[in-house]
């Protein structure tokens, strides 16, 4: 990564942090409803992988912790926030919510709320890309706990048998909802589980965005060159509970403190400061500017946008006026 890129990456990760923290506030203010799963602590994962991929060209799919992945693909943060507010201007027109952000124009194929659901969907997107002779790849981001679903095993098997261009990124934050990984999972190192499918796999530090980028570059190159699927495990930590309804009482304070010292934004910031690329004042100015942008553009847009009309409640259930439904086409 060039110094200019690193500064941009720092800004984008800080933006992701502040965006999610603002979502938290809006949720407490009851502007956002439903379930809300936030990303602070894990920013280097989506950021590092998408630095190595081609955002907007490669196809990305994930679970319900999806706001930042959508934005990394090119989704407008205003549309993402408006979706959380349930507005017609939201990325899914207010029909999806936090767990179902979509931006198909930028090849963000959605957030899905059934744990493990996206594994086969990602393999299917890869199958389609292969059939079409595209050089795009399919990238599936999911958490460690999803690997205890059958779809994990079924999808890895099919991806290998059919040599599909799919990269599975496992963001291992050590908890499945509120259960620590060693209490639910026989093999704690997730990359080891993949050898049963003869798929290359790696495990790296998910808190250092440069490490993630390097590992993702190897992974993306492998998949894009037609060598088949790859599995990348990123060791990370989420600062908040699983969702907003989670009191987070199940984690040891020592553990939280330890991971807090490995903050992905602080790691990169300090590295850039030490190298003389930025000053702490530059960083503070960057933060102030981001907070202002979130308030004056993004929140304002979400607040001021209209809600969907109840007259359109039944729109989008099925295709409108599909000629083959009525028959008689020749």
């Amino acid at each position: 990564m060039t110094p200019a890129n690193k500064k941009r990456v720092l800004r984008e990760m800080l933006f992701a942090r502040r965006f999610e923290e603002r979502c938290y506030e809006a949720y407490v203010e009851r502007k956002i409803g439903g379930f809300l799963h936030l990303y602070p602590g894990q920013e280097a994962c989506a950021q590092g992988v998408m630095e190595a991929a081609r955002p907007g060209h490669d196809y990305v799919i994930t679970g319900y912790r999806d706001h930042i992945h959508a934005i990394k693909c090119g989704a407008d943060p205003k549309a993402v926030m408006a979706e959380l507010y349930g507005k017609e201007t939201g990325s899914s027109k207010g029909r999806g919510g936090s767990m179902h952000i979509f931006d198909v124009e930028h090849h963000f194929m959605g957030g899905y709320a059934l744990v493990g659901g996206p594994f086969p969907l990602a393999a299917g997107i890869a199958k389609g890309l292969k059939m079409k002779g595209s050089d795009a790849i399919s990238i599936c981001f999911l958490g460690d706990a999803a690997n205890n679903q059958g779809t994990f095993h079924e999808s890895l098997n099919m991806a290998k048998v059919w040599n599909l261009p799919v990269l599975y990124v496992c963001e291992n934050n050590l908890y499945g909802i509120g259960t620590r990984i060693d209490r639910s999972t026989a093999v704690v190192d997730q990359y080891k589980r993949v050898c049963g499918y003869d798929i290359p796999a790696a495990q790296v530090d998910g808190q250092d965005v440069e490490v993630v980028y390097q590992a993702a570059k190897t992974a993306v190159d492998h998949v894009r060159s037609g060598k088949g699927p790859y599995f990348l495990e990123l060791m990370t930590y989420r600062y908040r509970g699983h969702s907003m309804s989670d009191s987070n009482a199940y984690r040891a304070k020592d553990e939280e403190r330890m991971w807090g010292k490995r903050d992905p934004i602080i790691i990169l910031r300090d590295r850039l400061v030490d190298a003389g690329e930025i000053s702490l004042d530059d960083y503070k100015a960057m933060d102030t500017e981001i907070l202002h942008q979130i308030e004056s553009e993004i929140i304002k847009f979400a607040e001021e946008s209209p809600e969907p009309s109840v007259d359109e409640l039944e729109k989008y259930v099925l295709a409108d006026n599909d000629p083959y439904v009525r028959g008689g086409v020749r």
């Binding site: 196809y59 799919i61 194929m109 659901g117 594994f119 086969p120 969907l121 990602a122 393999a123 299917g124 997107i125 890869a126 199958k127 389609g128 890309l129 059939m131 079409k132 399919s138 059958g150 779809t151 079924e154 999808s155 098997n157 099919m158």
Partner: peptide, 15 residues
């Protein structure tokens, strides 16, 4: 469930 999901994913992009 796996191959049905795979087919659904493929259908997202025109298959």
């Amino acid at each position: 469930n796996g191959f049905t999901g795979l087919a659904i994913g493929a259908s997202f992009i025109g298959v």
